[in-house]
Simulated assay, not measured.
Amino acid sequence: MSTPQLPVVVGVDGSEPSLRAVDWAADEAVLRGVELRVVYASLWERYEGTALATDLGKPSEAVLAQDVVDSAARRAHARHPDLKATPVVLPEEPEYALVHEGRQASALVVGSRGRSGLAERLLGSVSLSVAAHADCPVIVLRGSHDKQAVPGTHGRVLLGVGEDGAESPAVRFAVAEARRRGVPLEAVRAWRCPAHESTDHPLMAGEPARLHEERAVAALEGALHDLPADADVHRRTIEGHARKVLTDLSHDADLLVVGAKRREGHLGLQLGRVAHAVLHHSACPVAVVPRWVQT
């Protein structure tokens, strides 16, 4: 008997960003051939304010639960009539509810902010917390994206290659996402030459930089070593801080994939500096893929 495939989960709160996240999540569920779960946490308004999406037009507390998820599920169904979209209302804190849902999900999709009325470039606290604690990949809809998973505007998935090596869940996720969309994957490894290693001697000029670049090339090849032979992957090493390199490249990508280490028993945000930075500054949606490590 085959194992049931895990659904895609999208968090909604009635805001415009969360309804646009429904569009992306619906596309993602169709790409994966799975159910979509539309989740509303009834205590969300404590964190994100009171301004509802203009197309709902029903601000009363009685509407905030069922009407929000029903409207979002109808939106997903209108976009993909054959998609099973299940509305779910949970009387819990939003961060806890979505992280808990993520334990039985193939991916979590959230908007970049909620109903606080803040500028869309700012990342909401719920989105940040979910990306930092979920057990499954979390896609945060950052930037001026086209609000859909496919077809993308730029026709490529961008992967930031870190220190995880060939067993990286982020690498596997990025390859699979590019395959589903039928687009190439651009795998990027950033590198830097520390200032204390530079030299003014003309015969040594560029030598430390060359060694660091060679290490970056080796790390990139190691991370991509086990990819299928027919995978359409473009490899790049770029000098600079990883967070800036990836943020700059995100302007020409439809999805940026980064990894994040998780350690059992550790409290606080478990993202790392690169993932944290791109979540705040990326020009395209960001997928944060967790990797559990021994403490």
Rank of each mutant, 00 (worst) to 15 (best):
P7E: 03
V8L: 13
V8Y: 06
V12Y: 01
S18T: 04
S18E: 02
L19M: 09
D27C: 05
R32H: 04
L36Y: 07
W44M: 06
E45A: 14
G49S: 14
T50N: 15
L52Y: 10
D55L: 10
L56E: 05
K58T: 12
S60D: 13
S60N: 14
D70F: 10
R75V: 01
A76S: 09
A76Y: 02
R79N: 07
P81R: 01
D82L: 08
A85I: 09
T86L: 09
V88Q: 11
E95F: 01
Y96G: 05
L98Q: 01
V99D: 03
G102H: 06
S106E: 08
S106F: 00
A107I: 05
A107K: 05
A107L: 12
V109A: 05
G111L: 00
G111S: 06
R115W: 01
R115C: 10
L118Y: 13
A119P: 04
R121S: 15
L122Y: 10
S127R: 12
L128R: 12
A131T: 01
A134T: 03
I139A: 12
I139P: 04
R142N: 06
G143Q: 05
G152E: 05
H154L: 06
G155D: 09
G160N: 08
V161W: 11
E163L: 11
V171W: 14
F173I: 01
A176R: 03
A178V: 05
E186H: 15
A187V: 09
V188F: 08
R189P: 02
A195Q: 07
E197V: 08
S198A: 11
T199W: 07
H201I: 04
M204T: 13
A209I: 13
A209F: 12
A209Q: 15
R210D: 14
L211D: 10
L211G: 13
E213K: 12
E213C: 11
R215A: 15
A218P: 02
E221T: 09
E221L: 05
G222T: 10
G222L: 04
L224P: 14
L227S: 06
L227A: 13
P228V: 08
A231Q: 13
V233T: 03
A242G: 07
D252C: 04
D252N: 14
A253H: 11
L255F: 03
L256A: 13
L256T: 08
A260R: 07
A260T: 06
R263G: 09
E264R: 14
H266P: 00
L267E: 13
G268Q: 11
L269M: 09
L271P: 11
R273E: 11
R273V: 04
V274R: 10
V278A: 00
A283Y: 08
C284E: 04
A287N: 02
V289N: 05
P290C: 04
P290Q: 03
Q294Y: 05
Q294L: 07
